[in-house]
């Protein structure tokens, strides 16, 4: 931890970065905070807690106002995947971001069922192996179609339309949100029109979702949203060999055809 603090302090003092987005502990509560060279004393309160805030979402708000500054940010595996996607989508310039990587503990990795609980470069913590767990998908897949629909309609009908899943999402960076398009989804209803509300969002997550699980943590109705997004994520890998959060130079195959591939997916399940 002391090394981490020193590292950040040096970067701020040398002017390598204009700010460092991390978390401080205030009266026992971890909260996001941007360290600058004017607030170095706050580094005493720097913390790497076991709760997560949407760091790259916050980063984007700062970058939008300071597009030319270099900013450091504390990232876990999920945040780092988000950085790759944000760069792919031209929301940030990787050259202007200095990720400080934190590896998650085994407990956190298991709690999050995270397949890659570490960032590209680790500055803090010990790398642990990812968790391979698709029991949530298997649970749904074990049902027949009619039970699945009952299950999901039951889940969706709890939705209070808080938009929390979108608001907390690092990948929901659009200026205008389809979920608020009143030609598609009626406004003013809670629950919203189902299943369209949730399926539109789920489809958008194909080629976007970095499987951080913040959506599910933010859902007051406890809807297993992440399973939906994990499903499309898995499909993108199976059908199109595309996994988000891996390589900045790749492109979403649902948006871009690619220069050398006019290939048609062959593995199409027709039932």
């Amino acid at each position: 931890m002391e090394n981490l603090k020193k590292n950040i302090k040096d970067m701020l003092e040398s002017g390598e970065i204009a700010g460092f987005l991390g978390l401080i502990e205030e009266e026992g509560h971890p909260i996001p905070f941007l360290f600058t060279k004017d607030s170095l004393d706050k580094l005493d309160a720097l913390t790497v807690p076991d709760i997560r805030y949407p760091m790259t979402d916050i980063l984007l708000k700062i970058v939008r106002k300071y597009p030319e500054d270099t900013i450091g940010v504390m990232v876990r595996g999920c945040d780092d995947r988000a950085l790759i996607e944000l760069a792919k989508n031209q929301k940030i310039l990787s050259d202007l971001i200095r990720p400080i990587g934190v590896a998650c503990t085994k407990e956190m990795a298991e709690y999050c069922r995270c397949s890659q609980p570490y960032p590209r470069e680790i500055h803090y913590g010990e790398k642990v192996e990812g968790v391979k767990d698709r029991s949530d998908l298997e649970k749904v897949e074990s049902m027949d179609l009619s039970d699945r629909l009952d299950y999901w309609m039951g889940q969706f009908s709890k939705c209070i339309k808080c938009y929390g899943c979108r608001n907390i999402c690092s990948m929901c960076f659009c200026d205008q949100c389809t979920l608020e398009d009143d030609t598609l989804i009626l406004t003013g209803q809670a629950p919203p029109e189902i299943p369209i509300f949730h399926l539109i969002r789920a489809f958008h997550m194909a080629g976007r979702c970095i499987d951080c699980g913040l959506c599910e943590e933010a859902c007051p109705a406890h809807i297993p949203l992440r399973s939906l997004y994990r499903k499309v994520r898995e499909d993108m890998a199976d059908y199109l060999g595309y996994v988000t959060g891996m390589d900045e130079t790749e492109r979403d195959p649902l948006e871009f055809l690619g220069s050398d591939g006019y290939e048609v997916p062959t593995k199409i399940d027709e039932t």
Binding site: L149, Y239, L254, P265
Partner: peptide, 16 residues
């Protein structure tokens, strides 16, 4: 074609 493929699987996953 790509989109429809993903969409079909999503529909199936939710029981349609």
């Amino acid at each position: 074609k790509r989109r429809v493929t993903i969409m079909k699987d999503l529909l199936k996953f939710v029981g349609i």
